[in-house]
Design a protein around this nucleic acid. Structure first.
Length: 419
DNA sequence: TCTGGGGTCCTAGGACCC
DNA sequence: TCTGGGGTCCTAGGACCC
């Protein structure tokens, strides 16, 4: 059977969440601000109609917002996360084949649904009734086209919150009305590059030579073009994969110049990120600390830097990670700058259980040291999926599965033994 | 002993998304 | 004085090993 994807997207999600708990906000222009009340990250339809753009810095428009009667809310991510979970649970009741794509979007497999129109009507009504959140639905044979359909469902009041792009003629007509930048996966820079190659519209992108796209723009653009033709290249991702990185970062309320202050911030970033990582049962084999000045202050000397550091053993221990993050910070620290932002990324995440199960639970543990010493001089073979240790004191070669070790871990064996 | 090519790893940066 | 935070994927170039 032909594929059919439905993209369910919550309308103006953060603004809608605020309205659920404050019905007086209905019908009024509402915007939600980012951390530190920096800029606009969500707008109700009424706010959009006033011409307020995404990312508008609040401090520049504060007065104007007041004049226009725009209601401003600081963001409340705990609330939005909770509302999101409720919406997703309801959607899961409509089909088990569901991919939660973001906090406010999900792709559903609707290929087998008989009366699609009635099904979607019921879905929208249920979500609205049980959560107070309005959603739009776009349906098409590929994810990229489902995104297009969803956009039309939102923009066109006559659509009734749902658009179907199954018929090729209808797809053609829909794409004709769009610019390149309206496509999922094409932003400003890519649009400019495509235009320079003579590809100016979604229809031209759809018709472009796949080999040329692959060569000039890479595999992502080639797939996007295929998806526009109705050839599905992006499958539904049903299983939620393990996270590959966890980031904690913040802009400082005011510029910071002292090393000690940034150290303090970095320590708190690490503990936040590590806690999040532990909740997911993961450990980090690599850590990156970064700092930067305020790029908006052109009169200031600019500096940005990051430093990565491979841990001898993947770990989820906050104290170990803080030590590493501080070492990385010292390597990139320069006096004399006004730092505006800093952060820590935990990357190369592996299952914590695989780290704890084996040889090197704790590098400073005496037994671990002895084990590592015993490994010295061993015959090591790095296979595709395994690392095999031979000889000395082992009844038979000892194979460790690579996927239970981090990549960096296995290739830095010497480093490990040097501890 | 010399040479070349392939594979992998690492880092940095770009681009995009919500 | 004041412009978010958290992610993913891809590419390119250099180092290194076999």
């Amino acid at each position: 059977m032909a594929r059919l994807f439905a993209l369910v997207d919550c309308n103006n999600f953060y603004a809608s969440c605020e309205r659920v708990f404050q019905p007086a906000l209905r019908g009024k222009p509402v915007v939600v601000l980012s951390n530190n009340d920096g800029c606009v990250i969500a707008r109700s339809n009424e706010a959009k109609a006033l011409g307020i753009d995404m990312g508008t810095p609040w401090h520049l428009y504060r007065g104007q917002f007041e004049e226009q009667g725009v209601i401003v809310r600081s963001s409340n991510y705990t609330l939005y996360g909770d509302m999101s979970a409720r919406v997703m649970r309801i959607l899961a009741g409509f089909t088990p084949d569901l991919e939660v794509y973001s906090i406010d979007e999900a792709f559903l497999d609707v290929a087998g649904i008989v009366d699609l129109e009635a099904h979607v009507r019921r879905l929208r009504a249920t979500v609205l009734q049980w959560t107070g959140i309005p959603v739009s639905v776009g349906i098409a044979p590929t994810k990229v086209l489902a995104k297009v359909a969803n956009r039309l469902a939102k923009k066109d009041p006559a659509a009734g919150g749902c658009r179907l792009l199954r018929d090729p003629d209808v797809q053609h007509e829909a794409l004709q009305a769009l610019g390149l930048g309206d496509l999922w996966g094409v932003a400003k820079r890519m649009a400019t590059r495509l235009e320079a190659e003579g590809i100016r519209t979604p229809l031209e992108l759809r018709a472009a030579d796949p080999q040329l796209l692959r060569q000039r723009f890479g595999v992502v653009m080639q797939r996007l073009s295929q998806e526009l033709r109705g050839v599905s290249c992006l499958p539904l991702e049903l299983a939620v994969p393990d996270r590959k990185s966890v980031v904690a970062s913040r802009s400082f309320g005011r510029p910071i110049t002292a090393h000690a202050d940034v150290e303090e911030a970095v320590a708190s970033f690490v503990s936040r990120a590590a806690a999040k990582m532990r909740r997911q049962g993961l450990a980090a084999a690599h850590l990156i600390t970064f700092i930067e000045t305020n790029p908006f202050r052109e009169q200031d000397k600019q500096y940005r830097a990051q430093r990565g550091l491979t841990l001898p053993v993947a770990t989820a221990d906050t104290a170990t990670l803080i030590t590493a993050a501080h070492a990385a910070l010292s390597a990139i620290w320069r006096d004399g700058y006004r730092y505006k932002k800093a952060g820590v990324m935990l990357v190369d995440l592996v299952k914590a259980s695989s780290v704890g199960s084996g040889l090197f639970d704790r590098p400073d543990d005496a037994r671990s040291l002895a084990r590592m010493k015993a490994l010295d001089g061993l015959n090591m073979r790095f296979g595709r999926d395994t690392v095999t240790l031979g000889r000395t004191g082992l009844p038979r070669p000892w194979a460790l599965r690579r996927d239970q070790l981090s990549q960096r871990f296995t290739t830095h064996w010497e480093e490990l033994l040097a501890i």
